[in-house]
Design a protein around this nucleic acid. Sequence first.
DNA 1: AATAGCGTTGTAAGCGTTTGCAATTAGTTA
DNA 2: TAACTAATTGCAAACGCTTACAACGCTATT
Lengths: 335, 335
Amino acid sequence: MQKKGSATIYDVANRVGVSLATVSRVVNGNSNVRDSTKRKVLDAIEELGYHPNAVARGLASKKTTTIGVVMPDMTDMYYSELARGIDDVANMYHYDVLLTNTDEDPVRETMAINNLASKQVDGIIFMGNELDREVLNKITSADAPVVLAGSVDAEGRLPSVNINYVDAVDEAVTMMIKNGHERVALVTGPMSHAINKLHRLEGYKSALEKANIPYDESLLFVAHQDYDAGLKIAEKILDSSANAVVAYDDEVALGIMNYMIDQGKNIPEDFEIITANNTKFAIVTRPQLTSIRQPKYDIGAVSMRMLTKLMNNEMIDETQVQLPHTIERRGTTIN
Amino acid sequence: MQKKGSATIYDVANRVGVSLATVSRVVNGNSNVRDSTKRKVLDAIEELGYHPNAVARGLASKKTTTIGVVMPDMTDMYYSELARGIDDVANMYHYDVLLTNTDEDPVRETMAINNLASKQVDGIIFMGNELDREVLNKITSADAPVVLAGSVDAEGRLPSVNINYVDAVDEAVTMMIKNGHERVALVTGPMSHAINKLHRLEGYKSALEKANIPYDESLLFVAHQDYDAGLKIAEKILDSSANAVVAYDDEVALGIMNYMIDQGKNIPEDFEIITANNTKFAIVTRPQLTSIRQPKYDIGAVSMRMLTKLMNNEMIDETQVQLPHTIERRGTTIN
DNA sequence: AATAGCGTTGTAAGCGTTTGCAATTAGTTA
DNA sequence: TAACTAATTGCAAACGCTTACAACGCTATT
């Protein structure tokens, strides 16, 4: 019954008159220990207020029951919802989450991975669009398994969970075309990111092609993912004479919408918008935004579930998971 | 030059022909090491790709350079912005962040605290409105220092960082009164939370008192912090014949606003709204929401800074910090 | 040239667990 | 009841690092 530093396994063993090993066994719910002794140990634990020291445990067992989550920005609703899915499943499997924001800076991403490795995390979930070559090397050489959530690996080597971005954009653009638009603008992030260049843009082109509409580069816009960027790009979109847009981020879409409204446009009659993340932003505005619906929470949850399997060396049927998406029709499109 | 489990400090020592202690010293930037040996050690570290094992370090030094952050919900923009401030400052001081969502469930809050304690975190930042008695005991008995961020401790014992909620609400209500409203509704969270009962409500009453307006309980509304709750409560607010409202949460405020608009009200001419968190939600809508402006990021950052001092046993001038707030006038109020 | 003193390095005892292996005890079977 | 198997326990060596404390070699002093 000491004051500081709380009791250790040693104290418990002493109290009961058994060995460390026995206490360790009951603490870990381990098999072979007689009921009567188990009870005695449990009592002593209770009385002493013993709590196992996870650090010591980690050293001895080489497992920390901690995973690392590397994400661009937790205040971005898209990512925070992914992370929430991750966290819930992690807790379910008794893992703790070490969180790092990187703002998609490759330097910080690399530092984060290194740091997590030195903290001996059992696994890592990585989010972010850009996957720098150096980061990727770090990741693959880390002893801990890694899964990409809502991110693509250009070379398709790492386990990942996302939606089919090509199809999603294709469907959105096709819907706009069906609604009678020949000039549909596409707003994405920088082309240096595989997800934009290889997925979103491809989906866009594919939709045009199917409709026999020639690809017009002047309808392609690049914007950062925030409201002001949307406001800014909107002007150019208007100049391009596009009267429909598919945007990759809700805040950007909102910026565009509000700009259009300020210019006297009626939404959706004069100008149609489809956004892509379906966050709360899409719902709280008037009109509400038609959006590609990604199962964000589920992407996180499934990634985490996959990671638990990886950490247990369980067999995994498919490491490149694509979850279903739909288009949620709301007020910024006619149909 | 081994394959697995990467090099240990022992390998480095062997390579150079010095003792563990010496390697440890250079790794920790410790004082007394001759330059020449330091260089040799550094080279060996480089060649072997040695990275210190933080778990072992934690066991030996009893410091994990990890802090715990306990929060209601990371997808709630208010909290995620606080957390971002925490995370940035934590990184600045080389701490990692172990994140836990509790949904304000006292059971989960208690579990989180226990768990963090067993993981030997060096400190904890706690967010959330309700501070259950049991949780509080856990917290105060934990060996790690704790600071409350954006939360109040009814008994004012724990270090905390927030704004003056009483004044903030007082000012908002006073502003509404000056705008000519006699019947100003207040929407808060459950009265079981000190922040609502002891702070927001008091601010509300104080404003009424100064204006010689009797307190009318039928103008007090309780709602969960989400958009639908706002939509729902709005109907009752309309029935109460209030024509101005001060709400404690942006999503709720948005729900109220949209409902009013649907009922044909003109905002702000027919109905005025002031919200309290000034998240992005307040900006992306039309009209934009007038809001109490809390320095959310700073609350997080300052909490974390305070925690670093506490962890270093540095003297702290004031453990109950109140950061300044203002009212950001936008489109849902006349002035 | 002997001594004190300082900067540098090594020794070894932890830190609190886990875990393979050996030892002990209990339970069966003949 | 002896012999044998299975169930319980204890032993002690890791795990990778930090940190008193001791020891060493030098230079500076007298």
